[in-house]
Deep mutational scan, measured.
Amino acid sequence: SAVVMEEGSPGEVPVLVEPPGLEDVEAALGMDRRTDAYSRSSSVSSQEEKSLHAEELVGRGIPIERVVSSEGGRPSVDLSFQPSQPLSKSSSSPELQTLQDILGDPGDKADVGRLSPEVKARSQSGTLDGESAAWSASGEDSRGQPEGPLPSSSPRSPSGLRPRGYTISDSAPSRRGKRVERDALKSRATASNAEKVPGINPSFVFLQLYHSPFFGDESNKPILLPNESQSFERSVQLLDQIPSYDTHKIAVLYVGEGQSNSELAILSNEHGSYRYTEFLTGLGRLIELKDCQPDKVYLGGLDVCGEDGQFTYCWHDDIMQAVFHIATLMPTKDVDKHRCDKKRHLGNDFVSIVYNDSGEDFKLGTIKGQFNFVHVIVTPLDYECNLVSLQCRKDMEGLVDTSVAKIVSDRNLPFVARQMALHANMASQVHHSRSNPTDIYPSKWIARLRHIKRLRQRICEEAAYSNPSLPLVHPPSHSKAPAQTPAEPTPGYEVGQRKRLISSVEDFTEFV
């Protein structure tokens, strides 16, 4: 048969007729292969192709491409040299491709048809291009793949890379869960390890502090508590009631339409708007009261037996805890006409967050109470924005700035309102402590230090009264110190430094 060459192609190359033996071998191979691939376009007849790359030819070592076609129900084999250009295909004639002069020997084609199974398996396991790669995943090629499931790999992101949580363990979102698992493993320790309690022994800490320079003076030496005195035992138990972190309780009120001037209507609300609910979820963490331990979680007086509701929101960081007394989460009882059960919590909070959804101005004093010092007013606006402002009593104007209003988005509203309420509550605590000038409020841990110092002074006084020969370590507060001759004046800087060093040991009130 003659071949018409394309323009620009090399000279004529004689194409030899395939021997009958080659056709029989390739026909047997075509019957084993699956003929249901995917359909081509209507211009080209339905056909199945599979590209198999052999590394070497037997005796020649030339890479070839073998295409199996099922045109007219008769499979045909096409061998081509890759750099050459194939002729145009037609549905009426068999596929013809040019070969190099080196394939002119018909014996070479017979060798190609009689490829060993080793070469076929190696060509099938190679990388296939384009559409033949999808075909190689079918059941027909499963014989050339190794048996057994593939090893499982770690989760992959859409980009093909490992997620960040699997790369950096410290930033993994499941870090707290692993800590819980470690605690569970520790709890399952053997009885021999049960006595080993991690941490620092208080006796060891005391020993280090006792021999430090801070205890060089007799006034700073630790003293032993009497065991037989019940009054001192009660004082030590009272110390446990003062937490070592700051605590805040903040009221949250929802004002519906037409309720801006009605205290009873505001306290009777059992739910609010959708934006109000989203605002609550951002204030803190939802907790169930019956599962809380009052000595570990500050509840601000809420009952854990269901008297004040089942849930509330709280927030904490390293040095403070805040609980929100939310009116809509507290039960509304029919027998309580004046809502006294709610007001006994909300009316005693220094700061209230008022979500004013009424469309009218909310005035300070609508919720009557002796300790309502500051109101954080949240007014929802259009386009997911809110107006946040402050209202306070006249005696609080020096501590709280009420002249600045803020426009905040719904997303950042819980954070801004919480921070403003916490700052206002700190100012309210300082303002409330002014009624007792001898006990200015600095912080909870300073209050613990003052309680310890008062307890020490009482013990020293009782020891001096029981044994008059012992001198008083600290003179009583009601006694007057003996007159001392004025010492020589020293520079102001040295006096300030000495006073600062003494105050650092005794108390921190002056620095606050």
Rank of each mutant, 00 (worst) to 15 (best):
245 Y>F: 10
231 S>R: 10
362 F>M: 05
229 S>A: 10
454 R>C: 13
362 F>E: 00
394 K>L: 08
293 Q>L: 10
220 N>I: 13
247 T>D: 04
222 P>Y: 06
491 P>R: 11
493 Y>D: 15
271 H>T: 10
364 L>K: 12
279 F>I: 00
381 L>A: 02
331 P>L: 03
448 R>A: 09
359 G>K: 08
371 F>D: 09
248 H>Q: 04
476 P>H: 13
282 G>N: 05
251 A>R: 05
366 T>F: 04
347 G>P: 04
284 G>H: 05
339 R>A: 14
226 P>L: 14
432 H>S: 06
501 L>K: 06
277 T>C: 07
468 P>H: 07
413 L>R: 00
323 V>Q: 14
474 H>L: 15
255 V>E: 00
331 P>E: 05
287 I>G: 14
406 K>R: 14
221 K>D: 15
473 V>I: 07
465 Y>A: 14
341 D>F: 14
462 E>V: 08
455 L>C: 08
249 K>L: 07
281 T>N: 15
257 E>F: 09
408 V>Y: 04
432 H>L: 08
430 V>H: 15
308 D>T: 10
249 K>N: 15
271 H>V: 13
309 G>T: 12
476 P>N: 15
301 G>W: 03
343 K>F: 09
470 L>E: 15
239 L>S: 08
285 R>Y: 15
492 G>Q: 14
245 Y>A: 05
272 G>V: 03
349 D>Q: 05
330 M>L: 06
448 R>H: 10
489 P>D: 14
473 V>R: 13
259 Q>D: 03
463 A>S: 09
427 A>H: 12
367 I>R: 03
344 R>F: 10
464 A>R: 08
449 L>F: 07
474 H>C: 14
405 A>K: 11
466 S>G: 11
310 Q>V: 10
333 K>V: 12
404 V>H: 08
343 K>E: 07
315 W>Q: 04
351 V>Q: 00
293 Q>I: 10
453 K>I: 15
222 P>H: 07
401 D>V: 03
230 Q>V: 13
242 I>F: 08
341 D>H: 15
285 R>A: 15
360 E>K: 07
323 V>T: 05
220 N>L: 06
368 K>P: 12
236 V>Q: 08
251 A>I: 02
353 I>Q: 00
460 C>K: 06
490 T>S: 11
391 Q>S: 07
227 N>L: 11
373 F>G: 05
321 Q>E: 13
469 S>C: 08
477 S>Q: 10
498 R>D: 14
391 Q>M: 12
494 E>G: 15
303 D>W: 02
263 E>T: 03
387 L>K: 05
428 S>A: 15
228 E>T: 06
479 S>Q: 11
374 V>I: 07
441 Y>I: 12
329 L>Q: 06
441 Y>T: 14
358 S>M: 01
308 D>Q: 14
360 E>A: 08
495 V>S: 15
415 F>T: 04
479 S>I: 08
